[in-house]
């Protein structure tokens, strides 16, 4: 079984941005737990700006991308957005193949995060 973990940085809700680290592998098995955690988080949080750090995500399947897309739709409807931070080369290649680099907001550093949320 592939490893999976999610870290929700409760304390780091700064500038109205909720930060989450996703570690390991996001596929059809782990995506259920990922969606559950994020739904709970968004239900209790007032923030509609979500930063997902993907620098430790080794693998993402189409189920994982569906989940990210669902989150993005949900927050954009509320006037917010999801910014994906530093995806690994492999994950970025998946985004590029599927054409998601045109849909997701992707940032490479802190300056990029601020730019992405303010744009």
């Amino acid at each position: 079984m592939k490893s999976y973990d999610i870290k929700i940085h409760e304390a780091q809700e700064t500038h109205g941005i909720q930060r989450v680290d996703v570690i390991g592998c996001l596929d059809s098995h782990t995506v259920v737990s990922f969606e559950k955690s994020l739904t709970e988080l968004l239900d209790k949080s007032n923030s509609d700006r979500l930063l997902i750090d993907l620098s430790q995500l080794n693998y993402i399947s189409s189920a994982g991308i569906s989940a990210l897309m669902g989150l993005t739709h949900r927050l954009r409807k509320r006037g917010g957005d999801v910014v994906l931070l530093k995806p690994t080369e492999k994950v970025f290649r998946v985004f590029r193949t599927l054409g998601f680099t045109n849909i997701f907001t992707i940032a490479e550093d802190d300056a990029g995060i601020q730019r992405s949320f303010s744009s």
Binding site: M69, T97, L98, G99, F100, N102, I103
Partner: peptide
């Protein structure tokens, strides 16, 4: 061969 193109069912229009 990898001409650019986005998945079906996500977005319509210009993109």
């Amino acid at each position: 061969y990898e001409p650019s193109g986005i998945v079906l069912g996500m977005i319509e229009g210009e993109v």
